[in-house]
Amino acid sequence: MALEKFMKIKETLLGVDIGYDSVKIVALRKGNGFHQLRSSNIIAIPPKSLQQKSADLDKIAEAINTARKTARPRISEKLAVSGLPESKVFTKIIQVPQMTDEELKTAVPNEAARHIPLSLDEIYLDWQKLGENSKNSFDVLVVAAPKFLVENYLVLFKKVNLELIAIETKGIAASRSIIKKGEENTIIILDIGAEATGISIFDLGSIKFSYTIPHGGNTLTKSIAAALKMTNEEAEKLK
């Protein structure tokens, strides 16, 4: 079931964002026809905790549980959604000839393999047909994520007794909150994290380009510290 449809029928949802060095959670409750913020919290975790094959899932699970317990009001929602870090996910628009949906199941992985620097055995692959590119072809949005990363998420959410109903890239997730339905302008979304910045370009409501720059908030903090001859902690507060 598409996340948009799921949100229409569910009264409560929990959003869990596992970033470079923190866990952020928000609890949403439906009211007046749309979801409203009920509670939120943020807890620090060791850098790159979930982005490694040897991730310490117990520490991250402890952080999520602490965030839920110490939030005010306390967070009890069980249905959760989360986003994969753009720096670890491959997002690409590919063109394929006109064909049936059944033929796409073979054609898309074969074409995607030419653009993704990992073997198909190492990734989970998903795609969505966007529309006609010309009379003879159409655009397909392809998203690929390393299996170890997705499996880390699945194991982690089981550890904290949350039902993970949806997981997608942060850029696409952000677009749902920012871009209005029927938007005709081209929109650029910048997701500035601690270690990387995700750039996503949307046109007519569909993603057209995605790229990650290996510089984020920490780069700015270090630059401020060097320029003003202060510690990183002082620069972080100034920033």
Rank of each mutant, 00 (worst) to 15 (best):
I179Q: 01
E184D: 12
V142K: 00
L79H: 09
I94S: 01
L154W: 11
D121Y: 03
G131W: 08
F138N: 09
L130A: 05
L118I: 03
A166Q: 04
Q128K: 15
K181W: 13
A166K: 03
A144Y: 00
W127F: 15
K147N: 06
T100Q: 09
L149Y: 00
L162R: 05
L130C: 06
N65C: 14
L164G: 05
S76C: 12
V150F: 05
V143K: 10
V150Q: 01
V150E: 03
T169W: 04
D58G: 12
V155L: 11
N152D: 06
E151T: 12
A71V: 10
V142R: 06
D139Y: 10
K59M: 14
R74Q: 13
R74D: 06
T70Y: 11
I172P: 06
K147W: 06
E183M: 13
V142S: 03
R114A: 15
P85L: 00
V96E: 02
A112N: 00
E102Q: 11
I165C: 02
D139A: 08
D139N: 06
A173E: 08
N136D: 01
S82Y: 06
K129M: 13
A107V: 13
K180C: 06
A145T: 02
E77H: 07
E132N: 13
V160S: 02
A67H: 05
P85D: 07
A67I: 04
N65M: 15
I94W: 07
K92V: 10
V155E: 00
D58K: 15
N152A: 10
N65T: 15
K180D: 09
L164H: 02
L156Y: 07
V89G: 02
I167P: 03
P97C: 00
E151F: 09
S134V: 11
L104F: 05
N110H: 14
Y153L: 08
G182W: 11
P97F: 07
V108L: 09
K147S: 04
